[in-house]
């Protein structure tokens, strides 16, 4: 690595990741030529996005959120209903699903954001459950437990993208773009303001950080990305039902960031991959798949309190990758993403 100019490294890393995501992985998938592998890859990518968006709220801003899956569900239902009832295509439903999830998050955030620690956590649990009850019981709108079958798959500006490889590329593209956005939010001055809230919100307040507003913003932003993930899921599978968005799902996403390490975006991605792929690898164990989630989570809390890649180690990584920009001797560009 020493041969590289320090400032080239992030580019190299990102180019490597992009290459892996958009060339190597699809080639491998095409090589195996089995739909099942495509599905697993897409599922893993969607959960990477869900974990990363939760990471922003829970890991970076320190607000324990126990209802994230509900906003994922709101996005999925929004996309499904817009598509089946109004005949809109994926190009329109994707951003709209994110926006609708964000608006609902903003509405529930207004009264609850004053709450601290466990009270916030419990309020998010209640909100998640309320949204879930709506999905389950408002049969007129959501078809209740029967779920919704989507008639239109993935497409972009009229191009049909419902083929296996095209679906993969669409999911990977949307997830990659979202991750870039989430990365900019968490590895920038904005992220530092969020971290200061996590560390000591009274003190952050005295430094001029608008804590209440920032909490609301980050909750809304994370719901936006959860909604985007929901739209991807709805159009990818063509069928959604309330069971995909219950409390267990929220906990699964939380377990991902706990396993990966709170506060670290790469950690969230690793945690999501571990908890999605491990059960797939261990398929022979059958029923033991879900119990693994609990065991891995417990083991991580007990033995790796910082997760696989907690804030501290993540900080070091961020500094190696992006630290060059912070040097005074650098090109003067600050702590924003370059």
């Amino acid at each position: 690595m020493s041969g590289f100019d320090a400032r080239m490294r992030p580019l190299a890393v990102r180019a490597g990741l992009a290459l892996l995501l958009f060339a190597v992985l699809p080639a491998v998938l095409a090589g195996f030529d089995r739909s099942y592998y495509y599905q697993v890859a897409n599922l893993a990518l969607i959960f990477v996005l869900l974990a990363a968006s939760l990471q922003l709220v829970t890991g970076v801003a320190g607000l324990l959120h126990l209802g994230h899956a509900a906003f994922y569900g709101v996005g999925a239902y929004a996309a499904a209903l817009l598509s089946t009832e109004l005949g809109l295509g994926f190009t329109v439903t994707l951003p709209l699903a994110g926006l609708i999830a964000a608006v609902i998050a903003l509405l529930v955030a207004l009264p609850t954001m004053r709450l601290v620690s466990i009270y916030f956590a419990v309020a998010t649990l209640a909100i998640g459950q309320m949204l879930y009850l709506v999905m389950l019981n408002w049969v007129g709108l959501t078809k209740g437990p029967n779920g919704i079958v989507l008639t239109r798959g993935l497409e972009l500006f009229g191009f049909d993208l419902s083929g296996r490889l095209a679906t993969y590329y669409t999911v990977a593209g949307v997830v990659a773009l979202s991750l870039v956005a989430l990365g900019r939010l968490s590895h920038s001055y904005y992220g530092n303001a969020l971290r200061s809230i996590r560390e000591d919100d009274q003190c952050a307040d005295a430094m001029g950080v608008r804590t209440a507003r920032l909490k609301m913003e980050v909750f809304t932003l994370s719901a936006f990305f959860a909604g985007v993930a929901g739209a991807l899921w709805a159009h990818m599978t063509g069928y959604i039902s309330p069971g995909d968005f219950d409390f267990g799902e929220s906990i699964l996403i939380l377990a991902m960031i706990v396993v990966g390490g709170l506060g670290s975006l790469p950690g969230a991605a690793i945690g999501a991959l571990v908890l999605i792929l491990l059960p797939e690898v261990l398929r022979d164990l059958g029923d033991f798949r879900n119990i693994m989630v609990g065991l891995v989570m417990f083991g991580c809390i007990l033995f790796l309190p910082k997760g696989l890649m907690g804030e501290v180690s993540a900080l070091r990584l961020a500094r190696q990758q992006f630290g060059a920009a912070w040097r005074r001797t650098g090109n003067g560009v600050g702590i924003g993403w370059r």
Partner: peptide, 22 residues
């Protein structure tokens, strides 16, 4: 301690529920 026990009790609850299901 509050946060780690919150998460650890959550993890234990998953394990117990899933074990009963098995």
């Amino acid at each position: 301690m509050r946060e780690s026990t919150l998460l650890s009790s959550l993890a234990v609850s998953i394990v117990v529920r899933e074990a009963l299901e098995i």
